[in-house]
């Protein structure tokens, strides 16, 4: 089912947190609300599920206007960051609770609970209480409980934040699998760009209550709308380099790069160069000294202090013989240089 927010505004007392936000999530799509803390992504989520009232604007599930429908009647499944399982109920009772509220017959509830438990693969843990379950298992119970009503929309609020790194990887794939299998429209709220990029069809990147870019992960990575977007996506992060655009791009006091095609401005700008676009594999061009090497197993990160000012980061396969203090002369992939105005707007 398609979800549509129109001119959504939210204020807490005199403070307006979100102003006139529009967002459409396609039917069966998984959308990420990504942003740093305090950007308004959780507020948006709470408004969609009905826990917060909207100060202005409208919300549609398909053609149904649910703006003033109470949360209980909205048909939204939510998975909370701390799972919010009911501590005094077993996993089975937790999952079945929404149906119990709907006064479904017991046999029907039992059948449905079993179906959902199988979907999230916890069929043999149903008689345990939350305290007896691991974090990942609790997560699955929470997911099953959110899905059992066959909701129009599934909302996930930082669902992986409380898991350790290994489980996080596993649950990332699990949640995506379950979402694909059920074809449910889903919104993932997260501050972790890796989660957003790996799990979602599209990402809405938010900052200060506004969506700064809405795009597929690939395009957002390759074609960021602003310096903020470029800096937020990518791990290891992009390097920014002040430059002066003239005939060529002057870097620091002594070095130059060729001017990329299509760049029309003159004067001070900021270049964004991702680590994979700087290194010996791109030939030569910029002189500098290696000031930092961080082995990461499969690859290593290398920071280069450029002669005349500026630092660029490169990512090299492990085994490259570069050492701290080495003098290097590495090239930049010219077609992949991103240029921003000094205000951070993409040029």
């Amino acid at each position: 089912m398609e979800l549509r927010l129109e001119k959504f505004t939210k204020a807490f007392g005199p403070v307006t947190v979100i102003q006139d936000m529009d967002l459409t999530v396609g039917s069966g799509e998984m959308m990420a609300l990504l942003g740093p803390s305090g950007c308004g992504k959780s507020t948006t989520l709470f408004a969609i599920c009905g826990i917060h009232k909207m100060t202005g604007g409208r919300l549609y599930f398909g053609d149904r206007d649910v703006t003033s429908v109470p949360a209980q009647q909205r048909s939204v499944g939510v998975v909370f960051q701390n799972y919010a399982l009911y501590p005094h109920m077993t996993a089975e009772q937790n999952i079945g609770f929404p149906l119990k509220v709907m006064r479904q017959p017991k046999a029907e509830i039992a059948k449905e609970v079993q179906r959902l438990a199988d979907l999230v693969q916890i069929g043999d843990l149903l008689d345990r209480r939350p305290a007896q379950l691991s974090g990942g298992q609790q997560q699955r119970v929470a997911l099953a409980r959110a899905m059992i009503r066959k909701p129009d929309v599934l909302l996930l609020d930082e669902p992986l934040a409380n898991l350790d790194a290994k489980l996080r990887l596993e649950m990332r794939a699990e949640i995506r699998r379950i979402q694909r299998e059920t074809g449910i429209t889903a919104i993932l709220v997260t501050h972790d760009q890796v989660e957003a990029m790996s799990m979602c069809d599209r990402i809405a990147l938010m900052r200060d209550g506004k969506i700064v870019q809405l795009d597929t992960p690939e395009r957002m990575y390759a074609d960021p709308a602003s310096q903020f977007v470029a800096g937020f996506l990518g791990n290891p992060p992009i390097s920014f380099l002040p430059a002066r655009a003239g005939e060529q791009l002057a870097i620091g006091q002594s070095q130059v790069l060729p001017r990329p095609a299509g760049l029309e401005v003159q004067g001070d700008i900021v270049l964004g160069i991702r680590p994979e676009h700087f290194g010996p594999q791109h030939g030569q061009g910029l002189h500098g000294e290696v000031i930092f090497v961080e082995p990461q197993g499969r690859e290593e990160l290398v920071d280069v202090q450029l002669d005349g000012g500026g630092i660029l980061r490169a990512i090299l396969p492990t085994g490259d013989p570069v050492k701290l203090g080495d003098r290097v002369n590495w090239g930049v992939s010219g077609g992949n240089i991103l240029a921003f105005s000094t205000e951070g707007v993409r040029l």
């Binding site: 807490f12 009905g50 826990i51 917060h52 009232k53 109470p70 949360a71």
Partner: peptide, 11 residues
């Protein structure tokens, strides 16, 4: 101030 923090469910 903390005592007066609004209930988080707005209904």
């Amino acid at each position: 101030k903390e005592l007066l923090s609004k209930p988080r469910i707005e209904q």
